[in-house]
Write a protein that binds this DNA or RNA. Structure first.
Lengths: 111, 111
DNA sequence: TTTCTTATGTTAGAAAACCTGACACGTATG
DNA sequence: CATACGTGTCAGGTTTTCTAACATAAGAAA
């Protein structure tokens, strides 16, 4: 993961600022967690800590709900996203492997 | 200010995460505030809210202290930084003005 | 050396924020 | 109509943060 992605995944925000950032209520935020749409970390004393990515995701959830999607719909949307991300990742590492082979050939015969 | 700078100046972090991020104690963080090295916002209930820039600045302070500078030294260093930033800003807007004049001339005579 | 100053530790008591669990309710849907 | 869904609200308990004060080790100054 890149430096930037790491930072965006740091669990640094308490629920209060997430509430302000998203204009959701804490009831809503916790409900979405119960339904596995987000999975914030917990700090030492057991309090939720959100990342900037979590905030993004909450805003997405809000949009989907506003658009009429149900929570189950959103679960599936996210599941699909995950599948695609994995697929993409797989195809990329396959590409890397085949390129490696190619370069190895060049190394052996091509000079 | 750019979008990015705006985000970095958002007051979103409670002192607890700042403590974890900087490895300072809250006593230290508040002491530096007392000495005007940082000026965090306050949330609704009066609790301190730090921005990512505040975190950077705290890390800077830490480095200066480790290097043997006193708090007063650091105050002056920061004051100097501010002066330079303003200077730079002034010279840039002067440049903009003179370029504007120049283009105005071209507009009037140059075709 | 003795006496300040500086940066930090520690403690106490109060206020704010957060936690879980439960019950309530309006709306949409089967 | 009956149910499920998403959200509001409340209570009681825990965690975090707040301010203010006193304590102290190490360096600076007298």
């Amino acid at each position: 993961m890149s430096e930037r992605e790491l930072r965006r995944n740091l669990a640094i925000l308490p629920i209060g600022t997430v509430r302000e950032l998203t204009l959701l209520t804490d009831r809503q935020i916790r409900y979405y967690e119960q339904n596995e749409l987000i999975a914030p970390n917990r700090g030492k004393g057991g309090q939720r800590r959100y990342s900037l990515n979590d905030v993004d995701r909450l805003l997405e959830i809000k949009d989907f709900l506003d658009a009429g999607d149900s929570i189950k719909d959103i679960q599936e949307i996210f599941a699909k996203q995950r599948r695609k991300a994995i697929e993409k990742q797989d195809s990329e590492s396959a590409l890397r492997r085949s390129l490696q082979k190619e370069f190895a050939q060049i190394g052996r015969f091509g000079r």
